[in-house]
């Protein structure tokens, strides 16, 4: 996409290409197997049969950052882990998205302490924040749907500067 991205004004070609690529991207998200605390338990429940994240095409958790395009930060981010998260995020191929799940990863939660990062958006850019402690699986699914809406608005056309 790098060659044609951000080169043309919005026209019938860009919108057509966008609709195809965005449809493909949002319908087949590959989240990374990555959980940090109790939110990860809810994330696992979301992936399992009762809530079935696979209905939204995001059900297969890849064991490697190189094979995934979505990272769900599910839990408390310690400073020691923040370093790892940054490296994992850098290893994910573009385009990539981040969901910050729960109060801890969004803003530190109740852990305003020496060891906890006060929001994962201090080290990586976050697309969707999901409130809750922990959020219910429905909330994660809603967050995923909002991310799909966001992906749907991506474009290769020149952005207004």
């Amino acid at each position: 996409m790098g060659l044609i991205e951000n080169r043309m004004e919005k026209n019938v070609i860009t919108t057509t290409v966008d609709s195809v690529f965005n449809w493909a991207r949002k319908s087949s998200l590959w989240p990374m197997t990555f959980g940090l605390a109790c939110c990860a338990i809810e994330m696992m429940a979301t992936g399992a049969s009762r809530f079935d994240m696979d209905r939204f095409g995001a059900g297969i958790f890849r064991p490697s950052p190189r094979q995934s395009d979505l990272i769900i930060i599910a839990g408390t981010v310690t400073l020691k882990m923040a370093e790892v998260i940054q490296r994992l995020y850098d290893q994910m191929p573009d385009p990539k998205w981040v969901i910050s799940m729960g109060a801890c990863s969004s803003a530190g939660g109740p852990f305003d302490t020496y060891a906890t990062l006060q929001g994962v958006d201090k080290v990586i850019p976050v697309d969707v924040y999901i409130p809750g402690c922990p959020p219910r699986p429905e909330a994660l699914l809603y967050g995923l749907m909002r991310l799909q809406d966001k992906i749907d608005e991506m474009t290769i056309a020149k952005k207004a500067s």
């Binding site: 400073l79 923040a82 940054q86 958006d121 201090k122 080290v123 990586i124 850019p125």
Partner: peptide
């Protein structure tokens, strides 16, 4: 430690 290990983003 933070400045040497983490790249803190300017939000």
């Amino acid at each position: 430690w933070i400045s040497s290990h983490l790249k803190i983003r300017k939000t």
